[in-house]
């Protein structure tokens, strides 16, 4: 380590590359974020109070965070089944399915939005089946959950997949030969070793869902108090040139998302800490 430290500037280009990195980062990211920060601090408290007491804002916060949690949870469940299948059960066409899992990541959100809306609308392929059952997806809060599940899927699958690959099937076989039931094996053998990956997958798909805009605006129908997400509310404030309101809303959203992800990170850190102590 000491040796490495002494020859740290052996290679050329340190000043140039670091300078360029810092300059580009500052111009493109740090200055704009700092401007929002200054604007947020210079706002009168009444602006925040107005935003926070607006029933539309509260409804949007509830929907955005609620649907994001629901979507991330669904992704955890289905993402686990998909990842498990892809790792453990070879079936014809597995490689194609495996590649297709990344589709929501590669497909522009506007395209996902109109495709999901058409699929789940009353006249759509799936909506037509659900409609007589009294289930409305498109233009309802459920539509938001569907869109956010779609968007977050690759994040959940791609974090769980390597963790499942690392599991040693021998432990499960041992448990099975000792007479454990499948449920028991899942709860006491598989789940504990996948917990950190599950949490990461949950956090990633949640983070993505909290900011998602494109796929949601089409399927939600954007009804105030019912299916309006925060991003759309910010968009509305911008269209009315209410930059103070937009700043307050953006700041509150960023803070709340940050706190939630920080909490998940702390739980994660405690998991890995405990695991290390157990070793």
């Amino acid at each position: 380590m000491a040796l490495r430290h002494r020859r740290q500037h052996f290679l050329p280009g340190f000043g140039l590359t670091l300078g360029y990195t810092v300059l580009y980062l500052s111009l493109l990211v740090l200055f704009p974020v700092a401007v929002l920060g200054f604007k947020a601090l210079s706002l009168d408290a009444s602006v925040y109070l107005n935003v926070l007491t607006d029933p539309r804002t509260l409804a949007a916060f509830k929907l955005t965070f609620g649907a994001a949690f629901a979507g991330a949870f669904l992704n955890l469940v289905f993402g686990f089944v998909v990842a498990w299948t892809l790792v453990r059960y070879p079936f014809p066409g597995r490689r194609v399915v495996d590649a297709l899992v990344d589709l929501p990541f590669a497909l522009p959100t506007a395209v996902s939005g109109i495709a999901l809306t058409t699929l789940f609308a009353r006249t759509g392929l799936v909506g037509r089946i659900l409609e007589p059952l009294g289930i409305q997806i498109a233009f309802a809060p459920a539509g938001v959950v569907v869109a956010l599940t779609f968007i977050g899927l690759p994040f959940a699958v791609r974090t769980l997949q390597p963790a499942i690959e690392d599991l040693d099937p021998e432990y499960e076989e041992a448990a099975l030969s000792l007479g454990a039931s499948r449920l028991r094996i899942f709860i006491s053998v598989i789940f504990p070793s996948l917990k950190p990956a599950m949490l990461t997958g949950f956090a990633l798909s949640l983070a993505r869902a909290l900011g998602e805009y494109g796929s949601v605006v089409f399927i939600s129908g954007n009804m105030p108090l019912r299916t309006e997400i925060i991003s759309l509310l910010i968009m509305g404030k911008l269209e009315q040139f209410d930059y103070a309101g937009a700043t307050a809303l953006a700041t509150l959203t960023l803070l709340l998302s940050f706190l939630i992800l920080l909490a998940i990170n702390i739980v994660q850190w405690r998991f890995s800490h405990k695991a290390r102590q157990a070793d």
Partner: peptide, 24 residues
């Protein structure tokens, strides 16, 4: 710190990202 800051745009919702540049 620099490593964390590079990831910052991933943590900012797209609509808020656009708004940053309106303010800027």
């Amino acid at each position: 710190l620099l490593l964390t800051l590079i990831d910052l745009p991933f943590a900012i919702p797209p609509v808020i990202a656009g708004f940053l540049f309106i303010l800027f």
